[in-house]
């Protein structure tokens, strides 16, 4: 019985989507002699009629006109971001190394100034990371992102 029902379901899907072969059509018509199968078929057919009448709105032509350009720009910018990041990492590492030298070995600087420099650098770094993280988090989860102001 389960196998019979399974066979009917598959034939019904093909019937709804116009993919029945003539032989399957005959088989399907035989199934429809049974009241339960016929009822299910009519229900699914009705649903199909509704969904058939729906389609997505076509966006403005400019979306398609600029589509590839946007992909291209993002592709290029991807490389630019990688290069920029590499440069920034090297630059920052060198800067921190120099700063470390000044703070640790710079005997001419008063201790208070050294502490101030360290506090300033650490504070800025924490603040920067925190703001970036918050922005990324909000951008990802903001439910009103698509609401136009």
């Amino acid at each position: 019985m389960i196998q019979k029902h399974e066979q009917f379901r598959l034939l019904m899907m093909k019937a709804l989507d116009g993919e029945l072969s003539p032989q399957e059509e005959t088989e399907f018509q035989q199934f429809l002699q049974e009241k339960a199968f016929r009822r299910e078929w009519l229900e699914f057919k009705q649903l199909k009629e509704v969904t058939q009448g729906m389609k997505f709105k076509y966006p403005p032509q400019e979306v398609w006109d600029s589509y590839w350009m946007n992909v291209y720009n993002r592709l290029e910018r991807g490389l630019a971001w990688i290069l920029l990041s590499i440069g920034a990492i090297i630059f920052l590492s060198y800067g921190l190394y120099q700063l470390f030298h000044v703070v640790v070995n710079g005997s001419e600087l008063p201790l208070l100034l050294r502490v101030a420099i360290v506090a300033l650098v650490i504070g800025t770094a924490i603040l920067l990371v925190s703001v970036i993280r918050e922005k990324l988090f909000v951008r990802k989860r903001d439910p009103y992102k698509e609401v136009q102001q």
Binding site: E49, Q52, G53, M54, K55, F56, K57, R141
Partner: peptide
């Protein structure tokens, strides 16, 4: 992201005018 899908009236439209039958 918890989904906030746009209503169909914003992103979709009718293909046919036969739906009233059902």
């Amino acid at each position: 992201r918890k989904r906030h899908a746009a209503p169909f009236s914003e992103i979709g439209e009718s293909r046919l005018s036969q739906i009233s039958d059902v």
